[in-house]
Design a binder for these strands. Structure first.
Lengths: 135, 135
DNA sequence: AGAAATTTGTCCGTATGTATC
DNA sequence: AGATACATACGGACAAATTTC
């Protein structure tokens, strides 16, 4: 087989389809995606291409992979109705301060989203950002 | 050739050496890294491995790649522990314990990923999950 | 406790497509 | 148009972590 990637590359197309399943709940938060070998069969793609697609999902924050275990779906807070979100401002501890290169105690914004399945908490996701300075 | 990667994987070792050159000024900010084919010759590694090393540099915010052009070194790297993605087990504090409905101090899994633009930390995302045990 | 099966991680070699010089 | 450089894709092999039996 040649390698015609007119338009979108295959790994992007595959990543989009997997993203669709995560967002519409076919793969609920915390559930495992099919194994890489299973995906190679389903999409008729090499394992490298499948891994590239999964890497794209990870970068988008949609999945988390563990060695020997599998790849979990993460919640997509904006589109999940059963997700609770909260925003608050916190003081940077030493670790976050080092990452953001600010002083300890500087103000950071934390967005927290809690996803549940059948009222049981599945995941808690916290995203930290610098507080936006004025326009 | 087999694949003996005792200790650090090769792409990490290569990434570390390239990082060293960027941080000590051997490759000044804005300069191009050697081409991938040149690096394959220098490190006697396949192009895939070289690309993996460069991808690690990108994730760490140390380099920027442009399609038919090359990979540039970015400015202001040092002192950051390259913890782009990390997994660790933590003890639940009161807030997380309440959310997950477990005792304070119970073990949770935390995945952290850091995204950067131009070597500046943009967001820090932490996903908390119960540690899986049974089927 | 230990062996086997499963699953992701790393690495190689090759070929072709696409963007830039 | 040609040369150079990165991007995508395939297939195979072995390593390492986890789960299952």
């Amino acid at each position: 087989m040649p390698t015609p990637h007119y338009g979108l590359p295959r790994y992007r197309v595959i990543a989009d389809q997997l993203r669709e399943r995560i967002e519409n709940g076919a793969i609920p938060p915390g559930a495992l995606l099919p194994a890489e070998t299973a995906l190679t069969a389903e999409f008729r793609a090499s394992r490298g291409t499948i891994r590239q697609a999964i890497a794209a999902l990870r970068e988008a924050g949609l999945a988390t992979t563990e060695h020997g275990r599998g790849t979990y779906a993460n919640a997509y807070p904006d589109r999940f109705s059963d997700a609770q979100t909260r925003r608050r401002e916190i003081a940077a501890d030493a670790e976050l301060a080092a990452l953001f290169d600010v002083e300890v105690g500087a103000t950071l914004v934390e967005h927290q989203s809690v996803t549940r399945t059948e009222s049981k908490v599945e995941t808690v996701m916290r995203v930290y950002r610098l507080r936006q300075t004025g326009p």
